[in-house]
Simulated assay, not measured.
Amino acid sequence: MTNKIANKNNSITQNHTVKSLLNVEGYQKRFREVLGSRAPQFMSSIISAVNSNAALGECEPNTVIQSALKAAILDLPIEDNFGFAYLVPYYNSKKGYKECQFQLGYKGYIQLALRTGMYRNINVIDIREGELKSWNPLTEELEVEFIEDEKEREGKGVLGYAGYFSLLNGFEKKVYWTVDSLLNHATKYSAQYRKYKSGMWSDNLDDMCKKTVIKNMINKWGILSVEMQTPNQQLLEAIKADQAVIRNEDEYDYVDNDPGEMIEAEVEIEDSTKVNDDFIVDNPDLPWNNSDGEDNKSF
């Protein structure tokens, strides 16, 4: 049913604006299905986003709406100042016009991870000049002495970003990325940044660095099981949709990424999911595998 609605809507997007398409019953019905009584308010926020960003108004309107719909399905606001999810204009040189990418912010990843009920804590922070004392990537021993004076700290350059999460069962993960390694990542995975030094990596570098650290941690070491619970499925769906142009609700086109590199990224996600499934099923230390107490099974 969803694809039929999407295909029907795609056929009528020519010569329409985002505002006029949002008056089409097929779109309105889908937003009502997802959001209920909150649908009118959310659709108004889409129009506000377009009105405040002229480049979004130049995008193929269905891609704007589909990106916003994905944010609605994930129950994340699309206002830029919140930093949870973004509607990002992107010029598709193959098609010769602008489309809208759905992009998750680092706060969106943190929010979705916390919703799973399996994370005690998850965070990412920039490390300034003079703060990093030592980092051992093998033992994950990270020694940082933060500058207490905020004004003094803000005057220092950013050397890198540290990420951390702990699960309820006590498992912890720490990572550290230098700024150079993050920019190398941007050059490899974003054609727009590689060719033109533009886009989110140029306009919102701090957010993209934090997002990359958080996303990579969750991909490699977080719990990504499709069999567990709806919030975890939301996290998997967000990873899949992130940085994609969404033309139909469940069809993603990673227009800013080299196809070969996207295959590599998708395999990495699949492999980490497989490892985590085995970890969940076989590890007796996890609360839901502990037969000593029924209370541990509640989440």
Rank of each mutant, 00 (worst) to 15 (best):
V175Q: 04
I218D: 09
K174Y: 04
E172C: 09
D207S: 13
S225Y: 10
L224M: 14
S198Y: 00
K220L: 15
M208V: 06
W177Q: 01
G157I: 04
N184R: 14
K197M: 02
L168I: 15
N169Y: 09
K215G: 13
N204I: 01
W221C: 10
Y161F: 06
G157E: 13
C209N: 07
K220H: 14
A191C: 07
K173E: 13
L205K: 14
K188D: 13
M228S: 10
Q229G: 07
N169K: 11
V213F: 07
L205A: 14
L205H: 13
L224Q: 12
N169I: 14
S198E: 06
L224H: 11
G163T: 02
A162D: 09
K220D: 15
V179C: 11
T212R: 04
C209P: 05
V226I: 12
L182W: 04
A191D: 03
A186F: 11
T212Y: 06
L182R: 02
L167K: 02
T212C: 04
L159Y: 10
S181F: 01
Y161R: 02
G160F: 03
K174E: 08
C209R: 09
S225F: 12
S190Y: 05
T187L: 07
A186M: 08
W177K: 03
K211P: 06
N219K: 05
S225G: 03
L224A: 09
V213E: 06
K211D: 12
Y176I: 01
L168A: 03
K210S: 03
I218W: 05
Y189H: 08
V226K: 15
H185S: 06
V179Q: 13
N204Q: 13
L205D: 04
I218R: 07
V213I: 06
K197F: 01
L224V: 13
Q192G: 00
S190G: 03
K210H: 05
N216K: 11
S225L: 10
N169D: 14
G199I: 04
R194G: 00
I218N: 09
S198A: 09
K174V: 13
M200A: 08
K174N: 11
L182Y: 04
N219Y: 04
K211A: 09
L159E: 10
Y189L: 10
S166L: 12
W221V: 01
G222E: 02
C209F: 11
N219R: 07
K197I: 02
S202V: 01
G157N: 15
L182E: 02
S190D: 01
L159Q: 10
A191T: 08
S181L: 08
S181G: 09
S202C: 12
T178G: 11
K195D: 09
K174S: 11
T212L: 06
H185I: 01
Y189K: 03
S202N: 14
K173P: 00
Y189I: 07
K197Y: 03
D206C: 05
L205R: 14
L167E: 03
V226N: 15
K188P: 07
K211L: 10
N184I: 00
N184Y: 00
D180S: 13
V158N: 05
N216A: 14
G157W: 04
S166D: 11
I218M: 10
L183K: 14
G170E: 04
L224R: 11
G163W: 03
Q229E: 15
